[in-house]
Structures are given as C-alpha cells and as structure tokens.
Simulated assay, not measured.
Amino acid sequence: MKITQISIFIENQSGRLWEVCDLLGKNNINIRALSLADTSDFGILRLIVNDPEKAYQKLRENEFTVGKTEVIAVEVPDSPGGLAKVLKILKDNNINVEYMYAFVERSGDCAIMIFRFDETDKAIEALNNNGIKTIKGQEIYGL
C-alpha cells in the first residue's frame, strides 16, 4: 500500500524546477503527482513518478539533494464532505497528517489524494478498517 515519493531540495531560483523536469523527461520518467513548497531560499519538490528508483538515481547522479519517503494514495469520496470523512477516521484514531496533496487521476466516484502520516501503518489499517481504499504503489506508478 505504501508508495515511494521522491523529495528534491532545490534552490528557489529561475530554471531549477525546469532542470528537474527536463532531467526526468529525458530519462523517460513520468510525473504522476507533485507538490512544491518553498521558502525564500529553497523549495521542496515532492514527486510521485512512474519509476521512483530510476528517478532517485538520476537526480543523485546530477547532484540534486534528493530523498525517498513513504506515502500512501487514498481514494477520497468526490462529494461534499468526502475529505472530512477520511480526516475524521484519522482524527478518531489519533493519526496526524504531516502533509497531503492531490493526485491527477480519478478512480470512479473518488478523487485520489497523497498523504504523509506520522504513523503510516496505523493510518493504512484505520482507513482500510473503515472502508477507505488505499491504492498500491504499482497501480499509481502505472497510471
């Protein structure tokens, strides 16, 4: 159920985001989802890609500061209150959401969200026990 997310620390300057995307594209690595958070000096680009190991290697070879993190993809009901339903399960199980972002695909009547938790295994169990589907990495990478 866990998905490998690539996190890249990039300087907050013109062209750095392009360098990452250009490098990935030239190596046939497709970005499935992304999140960019920045400060005045640097940004953290978080990516879900079709081949996380290859992306990690290529970025390191090109001297980017890169890390891998486990996240999960969750089907969230695409209706008013859908995200609140998922978040209530997490709240009721005392699970903290460190961050989250949207995914580009839809699955039936659900949207897909990427979550990072402080207790990933506990979150997966709580969500699955309450009828919320978590999506396998291979399914996400292959979209």
Rank of each mutant, 00 (worst) to 15 (best):
M1V: 12
I3L: 15
I3M: 06
I3V: 15
S7Y: 10
S7Q: 09
I8Y: 00
F9P: 00
F9K: 01
E11R: 05
N12F: 05
Q13L: 10
S14G: 11
S14Y: 13
R16T: 11
R16A: 02
L17R: 12
W18H: 15
W18D: 14
V20E: 01
N28W: 04
I29R: 00
N30C: 04
N30E: 06
I31V: 10
L34V: 05
L36P: 00
A37E: 08
A37H: 07
A37F: 03
D38H: 09
D38E: 14
D41V: 13
D41K: 13
F42R: 02
L45A: 00
R46A: 05
R46H: 07
R46Y: 00
R46N: 11
L47I: 00
I48P: 00
V49Y: 00
N50M: 09
N50E: 03
D51T: 11
K54C: 05
A55F: 01
K58S: 02
R60W: 11
E63C: 12
E63F: 14
T65C: 09
V66Q: 02
G67F: 09
K68E: 15
E70M: 13
V71F: 04
I72Q: 03
I72T: 00
A73N: 04
V76F: 02
P77S: 04
D78C: 03
S79I: 09
G81D: 05
A84M: 13
A84D: 10
V86I: 08
K88S: 09
L90Y: 10
L90A: 10
K91Q: 11
N96I: 13
V97P: 06
Y99M: 07
Y99Q: 03
A102T: 14
A102Q: 13
A102E: 13
F103A: 03
V104E: 10
E105V: 09
G108I: 07
G108N: 14
G108L: 06
G108C: 06
D109P: 04
C110F: 12
C110Y: 12
C110K: 14
I114N: 00
R116P: 00
R116Q: 12
R116H: 11
D118W: 03
K122A: 11
K122H: 06
E125D: 10
A126I: 09
L127P: 03
N128P: 01
N130H: 15
N130P: 05
G131P: 00
I132W: 06
K133Y: 04
K136N: 11
K136L: 10
G137A: 14
Q138V: 09
E139I: 08
I140P: 01
I140L: 10
G142S: 15
L143N: 08
